[in-house]
Design a protein around this nucleic acid. Structure first.
Lengths: 340, 340
DNA sequence: GTGAAAGCGCTAACAG
DNA sequence: CTGTTAGCGCTTTCAC
């Protein structure tokens, strides 16, 4: 069932039918209803390929991800993708996923652009200095960056306010009376880790506390690294009364040490984990106080709307630079400073 | 740079250029080389939208996944997707990902089909009785099922030989001298769980061992459920000397119990986990003996090739029904039956 | 070997 | 308000 057949069955021209279906004003209400009804009855669905050729659009956005296993294995990313497709659906846009080719990621972008498969991109896992973004800007293809970069004032992006999140965590602990607050963090190479660390320092400063370097420990994005960091922390001659861990992977490992050693969270040591601990992970009945951000799914959905607005030029740049504010989700892993 | 411009710059007709580029025989070798060189130099890339309209293809395959969080959160699925895109790349095919619409999954399939966005589908997480497959068969759209179904002799699929995996596990334990072999499993509603369970029974039968119902415990696809199951198992008046756990989530939980209670795997109790334990999970230095299957990434890649062959009708049905054989990956969580 | 012309299914001027 | 006409960029008969 194509447009020609549909219009023939209605004794109308293809033009009129097309306009009726696409909600143009210059078609009588009566005709429109008749057309819509017939389309439904006959199960007409426009051929998007033809339509896109005529319109010069692709009605799709692209995501290309690197082949490195580390990236691929990120469970959260699938949730983001899920959110993106969901957010794109109302606009009848598709999500095209591509692996980076062996020739390199940039090459994949180039191919997708020149073959007109997509109208724009979502660039994930931005680096401080990001050549993909440089390239897309240069060839003038719409995109939304998932994460800020060194120079991100001139393009649309979506990111979390990592600094603010750490400040919140420090403020909460200080409010509970803590002044000896340790910090376990991932490599400061990562943009998010750097920002969170900055927030920690800032929060401490505001509270008039000098952070102790003995209590600032480098871990990584792995549970075992958090485990080791906590072990090291507990070997210190003087112990802190609270600790903030800047990512949930290290958080799981660190908390494992506390559980294994019978250290009671919220009493012996207050713990706050950035991003929280995924459910069904700890296997003990504890709610970890967390800095929470919108779920990956929600973030993806929001990004879908943003990239759509980028493509349609619906909004000024300023409104396409979205910084999500984190919140504290109170659990029972922290508590007031005890007299001891 | 489009075909018209390219052919103009070569003083050739679009026809000839098109044929040269698409490897037709009826164009002189000399011209072909000249065309290819020029195309490269000028950075010509065919507009796939136009090409697809002319050819009536989409050069894309679709994957639609349900919105349920449980599915979305499956980290393995992203790896499968990654493998699919990689496997599709050599054929210049794209992967289109869509969330199921609120109206239901079938509706999403229907839309994608009628709008000609895709040439076929990969249907994941098949159920024993699967309406999506019924539908695709009915409308005669190519697809590959990821997982078998009750009646899967008439369509292409890719699956793991779950039954054989359990048999292997039992055989290994029996070979080590064990006869008291417990089994912790997910809901037998799941196709894979049912098949693995069948394999367990079969393996036991072959070894002339009557499985004890006290040692067959129902868990689920969650770590905590495995934890609870193991606790229940250890409460039995008589204990088994070995246990097989049919999924890695429950496996993590079950093993946690053993670690916490100081039960030494491979000595006090031999443990085999289907699919193995993901790295950086246990936080203790143990290699769990596992039934392993091709990685999700590889599986995805293979499926990409399969669906491509389905679409091009390249092979007989029989060769499009692929059953992957699992293997045992030996760790140190099992060992010979000790005298005690 | 090469080119002219028709058409894939749809949209968008431009007339009426 | 509705229909006619001309493309979108590519492939593909069918002649030469």
């Amino acid at each position: 069932m194509d447009l020609k057949a549909l219009s023939a069955s209605l004794n109308l021209s293809m033009t009129t039918v097309s306009r009726a279906l696409n909600g143009y004003s210059d078609v009588s209400e009566k005709t429109r209803l008749r057309v819509i009804e017939a389309a439904r009855a006959l199960g007409y669905q426009p051929n998007v390929v033809a339509r896109n050729l005529a319109l010069g659009r692709a009605d799709a956005i692209g995501v290309v991800y690197p082949l490195e296993m580390g990236d691929v294995a990120d469970p959260r990313f699938l949730e983001v993708v899920s959110g993106i497709t969901e957010g794109l659906a109302p606009f009848n846009m598709d999500l095209l996923i591509a692996s980076a080719s062996q020739k390199g990621e940039l090459d994949t972008y180039d191919q997708m652009i020149r073959s007109r498969r997509v109208d724009g991109f979502i660039v994930s896992r931005t680096c401080v200095q990001d050549q993909r973004i440089d390239y897309l800007r240069q060839v003038n293809v719409p995109f939304l960056a998932y994460g800020r970069t060194a120079d991100c004032s001139v393009h649309p992006w979506f990111d979390y306010d990592n600094e603010a999140g750490s400040v919140l965590a420090v403020e909460r602990l200080v409010g509970l009376g803590h002044r000896h607050i340790a910090y376990i963090h991932a490599s400061l190479h990562y943009n998010f880790a750097h920002q969170r660390y900055t927030g920690y320092l800032k929060g401490m400063l505001s509270a008039g506390i000098a952070p102790s370097t003995n209590w600032i420990l480098r871990a990584g994005l792995a549970r075992c690294s958090g485990y080791n960091a906590m072990v090291r922390l507990l070997e210190q001659p003087r112990l802190p009364t609270a600790v903030i861990i800047d990512n949930n992977l290290a958080g799981v490992g660190a908390i494992r040490v506390l559980i294994d050693r019978g250290i009671v969270m919220g009493k012996d040591l207050s713990v706050i984990v950035y991003d929280g601990i995924p459910p069904d992970t700890l296997l003990v009945d504890r709610q970890i106080t967390s800095v929470v951000q919108p779920t990956p799914h929600r973030a993806g959905k929001r990004m879908a709307q943003l990239i759509q607005q980028v493509i349609t030029n619906a909004r000024p740049l300023k409104e396409l630079q979205v910084l999500c504010q984190p919140e504290i989700l109170v659990g029972n892993s922290d508590g007031p400073l005890t007299g001891s």
